[in-house]
Structure formats: structure tokens, C-alpha cells
Design a binder for these strands. Structure first.
Length: 445
RNA sequence: GGUCCCAUCGUCCAGAGGCCUAGGACACAGCCCUUUCAAGGCUGCGACGCGGGUUCGAAUCCCGCUGGGACCGCCA
């Protein structure tokens, strides 16, 4: 069996979007599953829209997702160059060859490939199966005229359908894995492979990703670029996991997995044919699951930037109480919040008293009634179990007193929140000194 | 207009003729747990688009219809 070589070939005319990330991901999975090579090729033949900045952005998006490539414009490889704009001579040479063989003709500066009728250009797609097409089907829009294929544009640049064939062949691509929107381009490319006398690679088309309204994902659906998800607090592991599940499954109930597990289990033959809807609820759930499984130190790394962004003195706290204090705070938060950003918002009181004060209001609070309770709690050893014990025995000793009537004010005073982890755990972690100072600030102690 | 593709719960996936009174996950509803909210546990709601075949038997195979989608650019 020949080596598996696949490629992701974005054009640097925009950021890495969800659809692109999905395609790149499946290529990566197939390469890694087969111990093959994953190649990054930049298709920058659209002179006006391509920029180096976008090329950079796309690469950093892939790095964020954890998709590393083995050959590419930045690291080179044996089949470069990996930027189409640097391969112009190659395209030119083969185009001239086609002209000299009478298979293509000139039209001004452009070179056009002649499409002969009556040819069977069917192919077998790994995902979609047999796709039957005749060259007679290649017609111009709203016309019955057969359409020849432009291969070199008037500006000297190759067209997509032509460059892709030349590059995939020369880069020894074994499997062309790309979006379903390319199925109808494939027969044209097969024509070119045949004219050039080259072996046709395997094709595997991937289902499209749709928005909630079942229309192709676009700006209207909100976040479409990968980075927006990073900024919202989604983790690359989750994004990877979620995207992998769009159009593929391991065949059983395994839904939460790592990159290497996915690579191990992945099979092109298990890819679905139906377009998939991008569902935020599912993404949220997957993110939450990954957030739960994270190492404390990694989790802190995810959440920290959002605390900093909110203007909280994270560095000070780290210096004063140690990194472990923050890590443990987040361990307490486990299962709360579906994104790192939410988790940061829900736990700000561990970092600073300021946001607590900002949320505070004393409406309906009977401080005189509360003080004896807090006094009893503070007379206990500063351990969650002991604190709870003290609280329960105080409540038990006062006719008609209910735990929630006391625990809730305590929670609100300490956190400024109506919801939090167990309040005695929170108190223990905050520490006696800090709790005392917070309660005293409000005159509750 | 032409060519091609798709069609199982609201959504993502299982299902490759009998194991399906169609399974799991998300979402939703309820219950349990409980100092709150999550998490967790349990229960419920909920789908094979329609019509013909083939077969002893069809979600699974075939045909038609309907409904979606992609492409038809000197964009990729």
C-alpha cells in the first residue's frame, strides 16, 4: 500500500472558518490514522483577495485546533514549493504541453482546455459512492453549449480546477478529502488528469456544515471563524471533538474523546453523507465535558485570561496565595459553566472582593437576625465539614430556622452570587481571614 | 435551465433485509439528591418525508414523487 498523503488547501482570502477547519480536521485524522502525511498548501492564485496575513491567520487557527502539518510553506518538504503563487512555471509548462498536443488552445493570454463530448467521467467517491457523469453534462449556465475549461487566466495565473490537479499529482496526494461542494468539480479535474496522462487519486467528499436554519453556514449565523470560538472560551480540544462528530462517528456511543483517540478510530468509510447542522447546545455540552476532564493547571490556563480580561488582579493573588489556590478554586467549580469564560465569570469572587461588592445590595436583609448565626459559624474550626456542622447545629437549635435562610445570605455576602459551589467549601477555600473581612465590610459580623 | 448530491427524533450520530414495539447523545419536561445552581441518578417527550414495487419479511434494495442542497466564474 502506498503512503497516505492528504492535504488541506485553503486560499488565504479570509480567516479559517468552521467549514475549512472541518475539512482540515478530517484530512488530519486520515493522515494520522494511517501514519501518513498531512500537507498544507496555500492556494493564492487569486491575486486581489489573497494576503500573507490571512495565510498566517489560517495557520495559527490550525495550530490552535491542534492540526499539525508535515509539509507546508513554512516548513518546506520534498514536494514544494507549497504556495501556488510560487509554482507558476510548473502550471505554465503543463499548459503549454496540452496546447502542443492539441488538447488546449489559446484565447488571448488565456489557455483553455477543450472538453470533448461523449466521455464518461464517472468516479467512485469513498464517501458518496459511485457518481455517474458524462462530459456532455458540463454545460454553460442557461445554455446547452458545452463548456471548455479555462486553465490559465489572462493574468497568467492558473485556475483552481487546473492548479489543484497539477499540485495534487506532483505532491503525490493519495486522497483528496474536501467539501461536498467540490463533487461537481471532480469530473472536470478527472478530464485534466486524463489529458495529462496522470493517475487519478482517491476522492472523499465531506458533508457540508449548515447553520441552524439549514442554510450554508455564513456570517448571519454569528461566529463563523475558528478564533471567535477561542475568544468565547471554547477549548481547542472541544472544538476538535465537536467538529469531528459532524459527519462522522466511531460507530458506537463514544462521543467525548481526544485527538489521538479520534485519529485511532477514524475511518473515511464511516463518514456520513448528510449535511450537518452546527448545534451550539452540543458544542457547549462537549466543551463542558472537556472542561471537567482538564488538569487543574491546564484549566487555570484556560480560565486565567478571562479573569485578566475582566480586570481582576490575578497576578497579585497568585503571588500572595499561590497558583494552587486558584487551581483549587477551579476544581471547586468543576461542572459549572460551559465555557472557560463562563467559569471565569462564575468564580470571580475567588480572585477579588471587588466584583462581589459591585453586585451587593442589602435589600430585605435582616442583619441583626443573621449576626448570631455568622458568629456561631466563625467559632468553628475552618473546615468545610466543621463549618457546615456548626451551621446545622445552630439552625437546629433555633425554632423555625431554616438552613437556606442563612446559607443563602452567607453565599451572597461572600460571593455576590445566588449560585455557587457548596458555600462552606467556598468559605473554607476563601479562608477565615478573607471571609471575616468580607462579612465585616457589610456589618454582618 | 442543465448536471450532480442528500433524505431516521428539534439537532448530532447508531442502524449495512429479520437482533427495531428503531438505540445513544444534546436540547426540552418531571422526579431524586440538596444551603443555591450546576454536576450526578432516574423517568418522560420525540423520527424512519410520501407513494409504489422486490421479498415470507424493508428504516435498510429498486422506481417515482416531494422536499432540501451543491455546482454550472479567466473565485477557490
Amino acid at each position: 500500500m502506498t503512503e497516505v498523503r492528504v492535504r488541506f488547501a485553503p486560499s488565504p482570502t479570509g480567516a479559517l472558518h468552521i467549514g475549512g477547519g472541518h475539512t482540515a480536521l478530517f484530512n488530519w485524522l486520515w493522515a494520522r490514522h494511517n501514519n501518513g502525511k498531512f500537507i498544507l498548501r496555500i492556494e493564492d492564485t487569486d491575486l486581489v483577495r489573497s494576503t500573507k496575513e490571512y495565510e498566517q491567520t489560517i495557520m495559527s487557527g490550525m495550530v490552535w485546533l491542534g492540526l499539525d502539518w508535515d509539509e507546508g510553506p513554512d516548513i518546506g518538504g520534498n514536494y514544494g514549493p507549497y504556495r501556488q503563487s510560487e509554482r507558476l512555471d510548473i502550471y505554465r509548462d503543463y499548459a503549454e504541453q496540452l496546447v502542443s498536443e492539441g488538447k488546449a488552445y489559446r484565447d488571448g493570454e488565456a489557455i483553455i482546455f477543450r472538453v470533448e463530448p461523449g466521455q464518461d467521467i464517472s468516479f467512485r467517491d469513498i464517501v458518496y459512492g459511485q457518481i455517474d457523469v458524462m462530459s456532455d453534462g458540463l454545460r454553460e449556465k442557461d445554455s446547452d453549449k458545452l463548456k471548455d475549461i479555462v486553465i490559465i487566466k489572462s493574468d497568467g495565473m492558473p485556475t483552481y480546477n487546473y492548479a489543484v490537479v497539477v499540485d495534487d499529482h506532483m505532491m503525490r496526494i493519495s486522497h483528496v478529502i474536501r467539501g461536498e461542494d467540490h463533487i461537481s468539480n471532480t469530473p472536470k479535474q478527472i478530464l485534466l488528469y486524463r489529458a495529462l496522462g496522470w493517475e487519478v487519486p482517491e476522492f472523499a467528499h465531506l458533508p457540508m456544515i449548515l447553520g441552524k436554519d439549514k442554510k450554508k453556514l455564513s456570517k448571519r449565523h454569528g461566529a463563523t471563524s475558528i478564533y471567535e470560538y477561542r475568544d468565547m472560551g471554547y477549548m481547542p480540544d472541544s472544538m476538535f471533538n465537536f467538529l469531528a462528530l459532524l459527519g462522522w462517528s466511531a460507530g458506537d456511543d463514544r462521543e467525548i474523546f481526544t485527538r489521538s483517540e479520534a485519529a485511532e478510530w477514524f475511518e473515511l468509510s464511516r463518514v456520513t453523507r448528510k449535511a450537518a447542522v452546527f448545534d451550539f447546545d452540543k458544542l457547549n455540552h462537549i466543551n463542558q465535558e472537556h472542561l471537567k476532564r482538564l488538569d487543574p493547571s491546564v484549566r487555570l490556563g484556560m480560565v486565567r485570561p478571562f479573569w485578566v480580561e475582566a480586570g481582576l488582579p490575578v497576578a497579585d493573588v497568585e503571588a500572595k496565595r499561590g497558583v494552587k489556590y486558584l487551581e483549587d478554586a477551579l476544581t471547586l467549580m468543576e461542572g459549572r459553566g460551559r465555557t472557560a469564560k463562563e467559569m471565569a465569570e462564575f468564580s470571580d469572587y475567588f480572585v477579588s472582593f471587588e466584583p462581589v461588592k459591585a453586585r451587593w445590595n442589602a435589600d430585605g436583609l435582616d442583619k441583626d437576625k443573621l449576626r448570631p448565626f455568622f458568629g456561631a459559624v466563625f467559632s468553628s474550626e475552618w473546615k468545610a465539614e466543621k463549618l457546615e456542622e456548626a451551621a446545622r447545629s445552630w439552625v437546629g437549635g433555633h425554632e423555625g430556622a431554616k438552613m437556606k435562610d442563612y446559607a443563602m445570605p452567607l453565599r451572597f455576602a461572600l460571593t455576590g452570587m445566588k449560585v455557587s459551589p457548596g458555600i462552606f467549601e467556598v468559605a473554607e477555600h476563601l479562608g477565615r481571614e478573607e471571609c471575616e473581612s468580607r462579612l465585616k465590610f457589610y456589618g454582618l459580623l
